[in-house]
Structure formats: structure tokens, C-alpha cells
């Protein structure tokens, strides 16, 4: 009688299943990465605009000092000073040298000891109702860097930090302000 060989051996089918499974896992990983990166981008976009807000506020402080004939960098403290611009934290800046410069950053509270409680104009990503701050999950810090002692330039760094899927993420925006008005 003829010996008829039909069908697949067990090992062949196991190998086929293995190959199929690994290729589909690779495809699935690609597709889930897209989903994650979209969500990550959303948080990052918000953080970028917050960092932009931080640098613009710093610039605004310099400009306001010019308008008021104060020393142009009086609002930024000394080297390595950090100011936290978040709704739940307020940074303090000693403006004795700013000599009572009127509310540069929508000053919410002014202490009698000549110290401005530096609070940004509105809470992050949410305008306050009745002035209550909310925790948005982002923290923002403005740091006076300035390694060289050129008295007409000022290096600042604005860092926004947040958490995504349990991991810490941050962006840092450097900025250089110059005293081109020679005030």
C-alpha cells in the first residue's frame, strides 16, 4: 500500500504559532506606542505653554522695572535663586531694591515687609473661582542661573515638571535677558 503523508507535524505547528505570536506582538507594541505618545504629547504641549508663560513673565518683570526706573534685574534675586510659580507654592522675591515697584506680576498679596509674594496671574490651566488654587499636576520653577558676572545680561531657566504614567518628565527653557536700555 502507498504510504500517504498528510497534515503537519506537531513541531511544525508549534513553530508556526510561535512565529505568528511574535510578529503580532511586535505590531501591537508599535500601535500602543502611538496611543501613549499622543497622550504624552498632550501633557507636553500644556507644559510648553506654561514654560512660555514663565519666560514671558520674566521678560515682563524686566520691562516693568525699566518703566519704573528701577534696576532692570531687581526682581530676579541673586544667582541660583529659585522662584516657584505654581498655584500651590508661592515664591518670594525681596524687592527692597525694587523699591515698591507696583504689581508687576498681578500681585495678589503684598507683605508689609516689602516682600512681594510672587504669584502668577492665574492658576495653571484653570482660572480660579474665588481665588482658590488647584493642583494641576504641574510644578514650575524659575531659576536665576547667570554663571558669568556680566552685569548687563541675565540667564534664567524655567523648568516645568509633571508626571506621566508614574514617570517624572520635565522641560527646561533657557532665557537670556539683556539690559539693552541701559537703565
Amino acid at each position: 500500500m502507498m504510504r500517504v503523508k498528510r497534515g503537519f507535524t506537531l513541531i511544525e505547528s508549534l513553530i508556526v504559532m510561535f512565529i505568528l505570536a511574535s510578529s503580532m506582538t511586535a505590531a501591537l507594541y508599535l500601535l500602543t506606542t502611538v496611543v501613549f505618545s499622543t497622550q504624552q504629547n498632550l501633557k507636553r504641549t500644556k507644559a510648553v505653554y506654561m514654560a512660555q508663560e514663565c519666560t514671558e513673565l520674566a521678560r515682563n518683570l524686566r520691562d516693568t522695572a525699566w518703566i519704573n526706573y528701577r534696576p532692570w534685574d531687581c526682581a530676579f534675586g541673586s544667582v541660583n535663586d529659585e522662584f516657584v510659580l505654581s498655584p500651590l507654592n508661592t515664591g518670594t522675591v525681596n524687592i527692597a531694591s525694587c523699591n515698591n515697584m507696583p504689581g508687576a506680576i498681578k500681585q495678589e498679596v503684598a507683605d508689609t515687609n516689602n516682600i512681594v509674594i510672587w504669584q502668577e496671574g492665574s492658576t495653571l490651566t484653570h482660572f480660579p473661582t474665588g481665588g482658590t488654587a488647584i493642583d494641576t499636576g504641574y510644578t514650575r520653577t524659575l531659576k536665576h542661573v547667570d554663571p558669568d558676572s556680566n552685569s548687563d545680561t541675565l540667564d534664567l531657566e524655567c523648568t516645568v515638571e509633571w508626571q506621566f504614567n508614574g514617570r517624572d518628565e520635565s522641560i527646561t527653557t533657557p532665557q537670556t535677558l539683556t539690559n539693552w536700555r541701559k537703565n
Partner: peptide
């Protein structure tokens, strides 16, 4: 000027998606 914006899709399945963002420009 400080600008705050909240945007959602107008119609469709995902109207609970909302993006809120804020920035300030001098």
C-alpha cells in the same frame, strides 16, 4: 495678556475629550 482656552470636539463619540491650556504673553 493671559490667555486660557478649553476646546472639545463639537460632535461625535468623544465629546468628553477636552484640552485646556494657558499662556501669558508680554
Amino acid at each position: 495678556v493671559t490667555f486660557y482656552l478649553e476646546v472639545s470636539p463639537r460632535s461625535g463619540l468623544y465629546q468628553d475629550l477636552v484640552i485646556e491650556s494657558q499662556t501669558t504673553i508680554s
